[in-house]
Computed example of a mutant assay.
Amino acid sequence: MTTNFRHVALIGKYQASSSGLSGDTACQALSGIAAFLTRQGCTVSVESGTAASTGLDQYPSLSVDDIGAHCDLGLVVGGDGTMLGIGRQLARHGTPLIGINQGRLGFITDIPLDAYEHTLTPMLHGEYEEDLRPLMHARVVRDERVVFEALAMNDVVVNRGATSGMVELRVEVGGQLVANQRADGLIIASPTGSTAYALSAGGPMLHPSIPGWVLVPIAPHTLSNRPIVLADANEVAVEVVSGRDVSANFDMQSLASLLHGDRILVKRSEHCVRFLHPQGWNYFATLRKKLRWNEGGS
């Protein structure tokens, strides 16, 4: 049987947590998926960290860069956090990713573990929906020197320390001043990240096809300081004006102890993450499932 994906990499996060399997359960799940892929005519490799965590050593192990260079598809078993991490790393290679979620369905890991054979079979033979998600490229500039640089898929967050007061942030978009904002912090979220921290802070959900970001203040001092949707063609600059223990977070990557005068510059990356979904997938069905819309209705 022919397949559109000759070489498939298995990737997972397997700790004792809600977003990962552990021990024998992990090895058993991966072994079953690997055997299924082999029956479909695929060559199977395992990401080196996944292989080390699970003891799954009967398949070749590859680094993330080697997966990008040699594999036609990455099959990610875990939660959305696992997918975010590997997506950032593989985006520059253009490697497509499919997500299998062993717990509650995620926004981007949308295939349940107990249904993967039925769902993956047509996908491996070309029946799927492709979903491109642009990354955010963020830099921290101090005294005209870049001291930190990262890619993010969800959001860039500047916030105060746990025991400190408000921070004051000067915000510019495309070189134009927006405002000096006093708040607990500020979120710059992509459409992917609009259903994460930004949503809990009162921001809107952005459809993934919108080329934009949402700027969401966290507990602003001035209640008229509301979320705003921006075109992602413009660079956003956030300067730390005042406040103690200010930090910046780029998805799960952090830089603590920002100094007054530090500037966080965020622009659209040249790289996109390529997600593949089952044929017939749509964003609104995902929202209905995850956010429990229409519960109790028809």
Rank of each mutant, 00 (worst) to 15 (best):
T286P: 01
T195G: 05
Y14D: 09
H207W: 00
I11L: 15
A34R: 11
L255P: 01
K13Y: 14
V46M: 09
G87Y: 02
V173N: 09
P122L: 06
L113G: 06
T54H: 08
V146C: 11
F284W: 13
T119D: 08
S31V: 01
M1R: 12
D131M: 02
R226N: 02
A34F: 04
A233C: 09
E168Q: 14
E130K: 12
L10W: 06
C27T: 10
R142T: 08
V178I: 11
G297S: 13
V178Y: 11
L223I: 14
G185R: 11
H260M: 03
E295I: 11
L90V: 06
R88S: 04
R145Q: 15
G243T: 03
S48A: 15
F107K: 07
I228F: 07
E270C: 04
E47S: 10
Q15G: 13
R170V: 00
L276C: 03
C71K: 06
A233Y: 03
C42W: 03
H260C: 05
L223P: 03
N4Q: 10
S254T: 15
V214T: 15
L120F: 09
L73N: 07
D184R: 04
Y128Q: 04
V246S: 08
N4S: 12
E144R: 15
G12Q: 02
R292F: 06
A16I: 05
T286R: 03
G212Y: 08
L105I: 15
K290D: 09
E235I: 08
R182H: 06
D131A: 07
R244Q: 14
P134V: 01
D155E: 15
D245K: 02
A115N: 10
L56T: 09
A115V: 00
E127G: 00
L255G: 03
A256F: 03
L258D: 05
P191G: 12
L37A: 10
T119C: 14
F5L: 04
G203K: 07
A183H: 02
G296W: 08
V238T: 06
T25E: 15
T2F: 02
S209F: 00
S48P: 00
D114F: 02
L97P: 06
A248Y: 01
H93W: 10
V44T: 08
T286V: 14
G165L: 08
V8S: 03
L265A: 10
V141A: 04
Q279I: 10
Q58I: 11
M252T: 14
A201Y: 05
